[in-house]
Design a protein around this nucleic acid. Structure first.
Lengths: 333, 333
DNA sequence: TTGAAAGCGCTAACAG
DNA sequence: CTGTTAGCGCTTTCAA
């Protein structure tokens, strides 16, 4: 930058002013500076820029679990787009491990002076973020120990939607598969219960299956056990995209066809032997909202108390969720 | 940091030394410093650290297209893991647009003083990176205008593998669907041609389909047209995961069952009505290798001339690729 | 409108 | 071994 100043025969401050919008600089001078910048191929050093006290870097951090899960990937992509439009980069935090790992990753990112954090929180207390002086937006699920913005989907409503739909088909024995202790899981279960209550039905607690892990394998195993019971359910509500996959895999092997509704849409859901009915929401919007909110917080444009944005869910009927209770017998062939 | 120094009653330099491994500091002093750090909750400011001349930040940049494509997501995740293990963060570049957008994104990242760049390049010249003074590793496809490390899969070999397999089933009219002008696309086509040559067969150029876009819709449309010709192929080689999806969608609607082999494995490929045979490679390893290589370049540990890492492809037989030519008639029901 | 100068938090070179 | 000091590239007063 100092080179540019010399080249243009102006002071350092002037160059800085031009680079930052050029207010309070005579047009002619500004032009001269711009020419010098051009000639020298100068590019502002964002790092030095962010060194200024108070000033944060023009990057947001995104901390999430498994990018390989289309759900997270969609959030990442969407937030990336919004951030990019405002000239912000997104730094990714790798967190596939323990909650300790998440904390470490977050602190790493904070030490990089990011302008804000978007976090899809795992369990664990996030109180350590309180004094960090960085705006935080939680995505998909709230965190404990800290008041902050949160963008999520209507999990309870979605759970009710799915369950109501199955109840309407006449199902009375509806199993629900739950990934371990996610916040979302609890809300979806609550919707499930509420639907039953609304229909005047008692929930058979043996049909509420808490899985040890949130992956497809775990769901597959549980489904197999579930369907081989003496009194199997006639319908299954899989509360997560990966769980849905496991359920379908088990059913395929077993040759059984209870009704199935999944939570969260997924690629190829409509191309499986029986197209899969799901409760879906606009995941990309989740990411977009989070990024927008965070950007506004970071710039100081938004000083409202912590917001809570809840996106609606919708039922997408494709076939698997419309099977009547009688279909859950052994498959023809 | 200055607070820490005061608190511990030592000089600034000493604190710095402790923070950076503590070589050349008496144990007792170091301990005192560590205590102070603990008490003050001090965290090194990575930004200031990276300001040092020559020193780069402890972040790598990853520039790729659509994170929503599991292929890219897998690369991102894998490189994130490797980088994270070395204490590096990964900054993501959003590039879903024109090659101009890619250039802009890359320069943005360079201005953030990243220690290295991993780029899944789109078309367009990358010569502008030559003088950037940042190590670059290209992923999945090489770029023009610059000599740099490249990590990719054996596209030609994979293309040959897929085609050979279909030829072995007795197919003689094998269509190949190609996404527009990707480098990879050309290599896969080359493998396709080589396989034909090896079998002493002439390629019917009307079966080499260049799609206008690389998405599923485009492939779906093309497949429909292809299969409704008077002389349809008895097998289709879809050179990309999204293309494979489009092909299957079209075939499902048409009720036709030519043999199908896809390039790149994808989730649920084994659960579709006819499980899909694919040529697959270890995508995660692609990301891991890229990150490792870049890290070594960035640290100066690796001074070899530009490397070229090629990962092998393997055929995964699942059914769709093992149909005989005779199966391509209209489906029973 | 512009130039000069004071740092931002840290590392590295140099004395002590 | 340890304290001091000079910047890194930029923004931002403060004068001129």
């Amino acid at each position: 930058m100092i080179d540019v100043a010399r080249r243009a025969g102006v002071g350092l401050g002037t160059v800085s002013r031009v680079v930052n919008g050029g207010h309070g600089v005579r047009d002619e001078t500004a032009q001269r500076v711009r020419t010098a910048i051009e000639q020298l191929g100068f590019q502002r050093n964002e790092v030095a820029r962010a060194l200024r006290p108070g000033k944060k870097s023009s990057s947001l951090a995104l901390v999430l679990g498994d990018l390989t899960n289309p759900f997270f990937a969609t959030i990442a992509k969407a937030s990336l787009e919004v951030a990019g439009q405002s000239g912000f980069a997104v730094v990714l935090g790798s967190v596939d491990e323990d909650p300790e790992g998440e904390k470490r990753a977050i602190q790493e990112l904070v030490s990089r002076q990011v302008a804000g954090l978007m976090i899809v929180p795992d369990q664990g207390d996030h109180a350590f973020l309180v004094g960090a002086g960085v705006p935080v937006v939680f995505v998909d699920r709230p965190a404990t120990g800290i008041e902050a913005d949160i963008v999520m989907v209507d999990n309870e409503g979605g759970g009710k939607l799915a369950t109501d739909h199955l109840l309407e088909q006449g199902h009375e024995r509806i199993a629900i598969l739950l990934a371990p202790s996610y916040y979302t899981t609890g809300r979806r279960l609550r919707g499930y219960r509420r639907a039953h209550r609304g229909a005047g039905l008692e929930v058979d607690e043996s049909l509420v299956v808490q899985l040890p892990e949130g992956n497809a394998e775990s769901a597959e195993k549980a489904t197999r056990e579930l369907m081989l019971r003496p009194d199997p359910p006639t319908a299954i509500f899989a509360s997560t995209n990966f769980l849905t996959e496991g359920v379908l895999r088990a059913l395929g092997e077993l040759g059984l066809e209870p009704a199935v509704v999944g939570f969260d849409d997924f690629r190829l859901a409509d191309m499986l032997p029986t197209p899969v009915t799901v409760v879906a929401s606009d995941i990309a919007e989740l990411g977009r909202s989070a990024a927008r909110l965070l950007l506004d917080r970071a710039s100081g444009a938004d000083r409202r108390p912590p917001q809570r944005i809840v996106l609606p869910c919708a039922l997408i009927q494709r076939g698997s969720g419309e099977r009547p209770p009688s279909a859950s017998k052994r498959k023809p062939r």
